[in-house]
């Protein structure tokens, strides 16, 4: 190839992007560290990292394995309810509660995955949607535990004592960094999984299922495992959301939530590492700005979304990558 001879203005950006890609987990972290200082208020920053993590987990099946799930609200929601119920009804310490939330989401993903994995394409999306609706109604009906349509209130973790220091979760800035600690850990693990041998198998399945099968991979089992891992990450996002909001609204399990995470991944760029975070930032900032201007914010958001899909089919980050690498 011949692009070494003449210096191009883009080469500079290309090198920066390559450097970012090489240290991708670190790069996200740097951005997230300065985040609460540049955004209008810290709660928005917390919201963005939580939804960024949700979209990141979702992207493991959507962008990397090539499977569209329309039921990821279930994992986000079960993670949140699991944590909330453990704190409110069982009075367990916050970290045990989070663990319960994440594991509950994982178990939900195991079951949903096992039922849905035999179908492909749009059928998979429909089956996951239907199963997630089942989860919604089950939780809705368990009013004693979940609070039904009022949601679960009083998920309050005030003070966390670490022995050498204590964190006050009622302070928005401290809460942000508490949340970010978990998100950062998750990003590191996620990045490691993508780079692993299993990450390569996922890409192979996305690229060509038939070929992957002929190579000797059990495609169904691979997809199922990806689904479960994805569920765990989304469950963690849900657990953090419960603690962040101090309540678990029933809407967290609604299929709108499943749609929202698809939109975030598409907006940011599916199958790219930074895409989900970029998508969460764009989506939530837009929502934040537009809701103050008009009650028809969903309409505006829909239009922006459509414009993005039509003109930037690779999403925000995907388009940046395409631009510098061309």
């Amino acid at each position: 190839m011949s692009d070494t001879a003449e210096p191009r203005p883009k080469a500079y950006w290309s090198r920066i992007v390559d450097a970012i890609a090489r240290h991708r987990a670190l790069a996200v972290l740097v951005v997230l560290l300065i985040f609460p200082f540049v955004l209008p208020y810290e709660a928005l920053a917390s919201n963005i990292v939580i939804f960024g993590l949700f979209a990141l987990g979702f992207n493991l099946v959507f962008g990397y394995t090539g499977v569209l799930s329309f039921g990821h609200a279930a994992f986000f929601g079960v993670g949140a309810y699991g944590t909330g119920i453990a704190i409110v009804h069982l009075g367990l310490p916050w970290w045990v509660a989070m663990l319960i939330g994440v594991l509950a989401a994982g178990v939900t993903a195991m079951i949903m995955g096992a039922l849905a994995i035999r179908t492909r394409g749009i059928y998979f999306a429909m089956v996951t949607l239907a199963l997630a609706q089942c989860v919604y109604y089950i939780v809705y009906q368990m009013k004693g535990w979940s609070g039904g349509e009022n949601g679960l209130n009083g998920v309050i973790v005030g003070q966390i004592d670490l022995g050498f220091a204590s964190i006050d979760l009622l302070d928005p800035m401290q809460k942000y960094f508490f949340t970010l600690t978990f998100v950062a850990l998750a990003i590191f693990i996620f990045s490691r999984i993508l780079a692993s041998g299993f990450g390569a198998v996922l890409e192979a399945v996305r690229e060509n299922e038939d070929r992957a099968r002929a190579c000797g991979y059990d495609v169904r089992l691979t997809k199922w495992l990806a689904f479960v891992i994805s569920g765990l990450f989304c469950g963690l996002a849900g657990a953090l959301n419960a603690i962040h909001l101090s309540v678990v609204p029933i809407e967290i399990l609604h299929y709108h939530m499943s749609g929202q995470v698809v939109m975030m991944a598409l907006l940011g760029g599916m199958g790219t590492f930074f895409g989900p975070f970029a998508g969460a930032i764009v989506f939530l900032l837009l929502e934040d700005v537009v809701t103050t201007m008009t009650t028809h914010w969903q309409l505006i958001l829909g239009l922006v979304f459509m414009a993005c899909v039509l003109f930037f089919p690779r999403g925000v980050w995907g388009s940046v990558l395409q631009w510098v690498r061309r």
Binding site: A195, G197, F198, G216
Partner: peptide, 10 residues
């Protein structure tokens, strides 16, 4: 190595 979640493929 069909289910190696940790070792970088490099």
């Amino acid at each position: 190595r069909r289910f190696d979640l940790w070792t970088p493929r490099s």
